[in-house]
């Protein structure tokens, strides 16, 4: 229950702190006691085979997939998974609490998930008007600015079906950034893109990293990991197998990491 959410003193200076977080879907244990702290301004790249729990890890942080057990601290206070599914009033309060968290955590998805019934501009404006409670004109100005910064000034009023995959993903990034999040989650954001469009999106992400954004990036692009990450994490079967600075992954310590890296380089 988040009602007891008196901001307690953070035990560390970390922006995000996961403590033995576990999550199962049915009998399938997707996360198995994961501990992870991310400092403010840090860029963490998460790699691992598919089904290793990387995506679920991201979804636990903003409770899109609430963890079954463990603690999640963000910005100095613990956040709890909804527990009162059948109590409408308490469930409503819990969801309202989570909205505060999600407004401060931006997320970009593999399949873009931009809203096809809204123009690029309206996609960005939705969060500004509904979540940040800005007026229409102010929101529109901010949306234009945000889209311009990511190179979409000419496409502001286009509907998503007139945009390329890369442009859609840019809209998605702008949509998340517009709310000035403290943390950005990237979930294999280049996996669904044509190869020639991958570089552009990675470049935007690098810019963001340089600007000091705290980021957790799930990706298969080792190039990005070497260039932009402060720390790389290798996950397999719901656990963190190995973590360290990117250089460590040029010559990983664990056999499984080595096999995986060899497989994706080929």
């Amino acid at each position: 229950m988040t009602g007891s959410g008196q901001p307690t003193a953070p035990p560390t200076a970390a922006l995000v702190d996961l403590r033995s977080v576990s999550k199962s879907f049915g009998h399938n244990k997707v996360l198995d006691g994961v501990d992870l702290s991310v400092q403010s301004g840090e860029v963490v790249v998460v790699i691992g085979p598919s089904g290793s729990g990387k995506s679920t890890l991201l979804r636990c942080i903003n409770f899109l997939a609430p963890p079954d057990s463990g603690e999640i601290w963000f910005d100095g206070r613990p956040w709890r998974a909804p527990r009162h599914g059948y109590n409408v009033v308490r469930s409503y309060r819990e969801q309202r609490e989570l909205v505060k968290l999600r407004a401060e955590v931006g997320m970009v998805f593999q399949h873009f998930n931009i809203f096809p019934h809204l123009t690029a501009c309206q996609n960005v404006m939705l969060g500004l008007t509904k979540v940040a409670q800005l007026g229409r004109t102010e929101a529109e100005a901010k949306a234009h600015e945000q889209l311009g910064r990511i190179g979409l000034a000419a496409k502001v009023h286009e509907y998503p079906d007139r945009l390329s995959g890369g442009q859609k993903q840019r809209v998605a990034i702008a949509r998340a950034l517009a709310l000035a999040p403290k943390l950005m989650l990237f979930d294999e954001v280049t996996s669904a893109l044509d190869p020639e469009l991958v570089g552009g999106i990675l470049a935007e992400m690098r810019k963001l990293a340089v600007a000091g954004m705290t980021m957790i990036v799930v990706t298969h692009e080792m190039r990005f990991a070497f260039e932009a990450a402060d720390r790389v994490i290798f996950m397999d079967e719901g656990r963190i197998i190995e973590q360290g600075p990117p250089e460590q992954f040029r010559n990983p310590r664990h056999e499984r990491t080595r096999t995986f890296l060899k497989a994706i380089v080929e």
Binding site: R96, E104, G127, K130, V131
Partner: peptide, 26 residues
Amino acid sequence: DPGQREAALAMGLNRAQAFRSVILPQ
């Protein structure tokens, strides 16, 4: 697509807003 709802929630819309502004119009 369930991703639509996910994206709406991830950006901080509550469930009613996600339903009204994102799911229902589509």
